[in-house]
Design a protein around this nucleic acid. Structure first.
Lengths: 202, 202, 202, 202
DNA sequence: GATGAATGAGTCTTCATTCAT
DNA sequence: GATGAATGAAGACTCATTCAT
């Protein structure tokens, strides 16, 4: 009896959290981060203002969780994709992976806008700190790291090279999709892939 | 007589503007942008609040001018440096140029913090729109573009490659100096230069 | 139990609103509308600034409510008065009603000053849009309209005539009491009543 | 020589004053009174801010002059009109006069908006205080007053009746033209004229 | 007389956070 | 746990007026 009750409460808690989560996501997407007030979020979620602070430290906290959660699920999808297909070499695989993400954001500009420049290595790091929660991230990381090692990169440089590839990709995606700067993403892609290839070849 | 008078006034105006400029720079550096209120700026500059709005539209306006001005002067210095020395090839020149900027920000972390991710191609673009005002930027750009052309890059890809090198460098500088992520700047440098070399070689 | 709690809160809310209302009224009366800052109101009411915006949109909002509320209560009183007495005809009744209001404002010049030229048909209209809230207004209106109809005014002109009587009365009251222009209210009264009589007679 | 010089200066002064006058009129008409800043006026007039205060006390001062000047010229026109035609009696003459003004404002809503409720007896009074400057007003006043006297109104009530007719007319014009309240001006006119007739008949 | 840079009090408004219920 | 009224600091911006030149 008691157990059932507490389970119910627990479920309810998760429900509330999710409501807040979804409301925040929606608002960040439509109004932007800084224009969204806690008030907007709780109203949309249908809970009281105080409740927000029961689940999240502040607006930045919910944003962080949001970015991590959304990025993680995109990477999960991308990972699934490259697993399903065969590639001659690991560079093609990385490029296919990258391409998936590029295409994803081409169709989700608003999400890209809020993830902004957070679409970066830092995110990666954060996720890797909780490998059980974001095991897809871990998987991708391990795959890439081992490939680079096999390619002959020194232990020392592996992570750094990976960092740079990710940062470069993030920058290009953001800038070309949102600002079309210096060109549209479709025109940037060949050059980006060429650069990635160069960077990943010893 | 009249000329003297108006000159005096004009000088005074520039003085006031500079006072505001310097005060804002100082405060952005120590307190950060968003924590700095217009009130703080005018108090430090020793002028009335209204005076601020005589010279700048708002906080973002003064920030933009600040970033452009500071970046421009850094690039000017870096440009001077690479002009004074001889290099075997243009890649070494670019790397020396980059190194100068890296070292500069190593010693000016706070400035890096406020320039943040504005240290990028966008800045470059902005400056190039006013070539007479930021002629150093124009010079650097022209130098690089012509070198890349000589190297054999297609007209189409030149600007894109340049964009990527700048974005990558900006990312690495910011991340490694401010966050030491994924490593310190000194440890990142060799890998960064290697990557730049690869990217700029056809 | 729950009911008691929510009732208490609700009472408190009404209390706060009234505090703001009274404070604003007092200040508008003594300092005038435009010279009264929100800050003054909240300080006098003993609440925080944000609280003001919890109850009113802005200064104009509280002013509108104030005017409507005060006017409504005056009309309520005037209505009570003419109900208590007997009159030979409806014109005498209207004149008695008007006289009550004239006398009221003679003794409340400051209120007249802030109600200013809002003491007019527009007010009437506004109040009639919420008949349940301002049922006295509705009652007065119905009484007058039906009397005019009985008198033989065309359906078309009834409202217009009423409008003119109200506007004229408002103008005379304001001008003669506040500015003593073109004469004191006591000297204006006989002429005003004569005019009303003419206007209301077919 | 000296005389010529001072005349030139004097002309220049009047010119500046007129520039300010016209600029203010234009801005009040397009932006409204309260949204027009002294800054806007001087910029439009092409003079320095300080100059404004050389000619007018403040924004209200220039507004007052504006209203008086514009109203005066309208009345002048209306007066001309009723002089040119023949009327059976003075009431018809007054109604023709009123009609001219009504029609004028029907075609100049913006001017009506800024003259607002200043279109009243007060204006009349003000103008009559400077009979040499606003002699048309004086003429109209004298005409009406003598007619009322002839009609048999007591010396005491003449001015008061006139006051009421003017106030009523002003109210109706403003309300019906700007707000179409309680009806359009064209629908109000017959009732207004009927009321004026009643008020002016002993 | 004319200028226009400088002033700074004054105003509204927002919003994250708290805490009594 | 949940609520939401209350808070009040913080902030941006305006503008009539002055006064040294």
């Amino acid at each position: 009896m008691v157990k059932e009750k507490s389970e119910k409460i627990h479920k309810n808690k998760i429900l509330k959290r999710n409501k807040l989560f979804d409301a925040a996501f929606d608002l960040f997407l439509t109004k932007g981060f800084s224009s969204t007030a806690i008030d907007d979020i709780v109203k949309k979620a249908g809970v009281a203002k105080g409740t927000f602070y029961l689940y999240f430290k502040d607006k930045y906290d919910i944003m962080d969780h949001l970015i991590l959660s959304k990025s993680s699920s995109i990477i999960k999808e991308a990972l699934q994709k490259i697993k399903d297909e065969n590639y001659d070499n690991y560079i093609d695989r990385v490029i296919a992976f990258t391409d998936y993400i590029v295409e994803y954001f081409k169709n989700n500009k608003m999400l890209l806008k809020i993830i902004h420049k957070n679409l970066s290595f830092g995110l990666f790091r954060k996720a890797l700190q909780k490998p059980e929660e974001y095991k897809e991230m871990k998987e991708v990381a391990d795959l890439l790291l081992s490939s680079l090692k096999k390619e002959g990169f020194s232990d020392d440089s592996i992570e750094k090279v990976l960092f740079m590839v990710i940062e470069l990709t993030g920058s290009v995606i953001y800038s070309s999709i949102i600002l079309e700067e210096p060109d549209t993403i479709d025109n940037m892609k060949p050059v980006l892939f060429m650069m990635i290839k160069k960077m990943l070849t010893i």
